[in-house]
Amino acid sequence: MKILVCVSNVPDTTTKIKLSGDMHSVDLANVQWIINPWDELALTRALELKEASEGKIEKVTVMLVGAKSAEPTMRKALAIGADDAVRVDAEPLDAYFVAGQIAGAIKDENYDLVFCGIESSDYNGSAMGSMLSEFMNIPSVSSVSKVEMDDDQIVVNREIAGGFEVVVPELPFVAIVQKGITKEPRIPSMRGIMMARKKPLKVVEASGLEALTEFVKYEPPQPKAACKMIDADNVAELVDLLHNEAKII
């Protein structure tokens, strides 16, 4: 069995977002780049499954669509434990473009399970994993909060209102995972970092697929009005304000 984990390269979640002077782009100079947090959890879970599979899962591959500058993120994924990595050499223009590029790059690879994070912390697309499953014409399960291997089957929990459904999809399928899938992202060990030097990182050409959307302009958020303070001994005033002023209850 082979697992593919799709990762994206995003600014660290503590980054203060600065816009360029003309507001046409985000100023990404001096940004620290990380693996998208959901993707990192997915990778960690994929590796846990592989280690527990007694050889049934032969390899975990990470895939990224991005420029060469994203390679440190990929080598980190290799250091964490992925067996190999593939980069499609193109700027990730939108989710449709990325999903299409990945689908094209892996069409001869026969991955049994594809992991994607439920969203990315940069452009907040939440679309790539589902788009990829559609490009590949295979099932997908979204909002996945647990993945287990049961013999040759993969069993997942899908979060729903008030609980979860246990879903058994036919392989191959795309699991779009959220927080809770594993306890915390794995930190690369010294051995892992050392071994990452020798692991393959393949670069493939992008196909001619075009993006369907384009980011044209950015705006900073509107400043918020000052917080109205209420005395701790007068909670009734809060109820009153929420009811009569905010009209929210």
Binding site: R191, I193, M194
Partner: peptide, 19 residues
């Protein structure tokens, strides 16, 4: 130890990190 920090500078020949 599991992360390899305890022997990070030791030669990989002896199981270290070789950093």
């Amino acid at each position: 130890s599991e992360l390899g920090f305890m022997g990070m500078t030791v030669d990989p020949e002896y199981g270290g990190g070789g950093m």
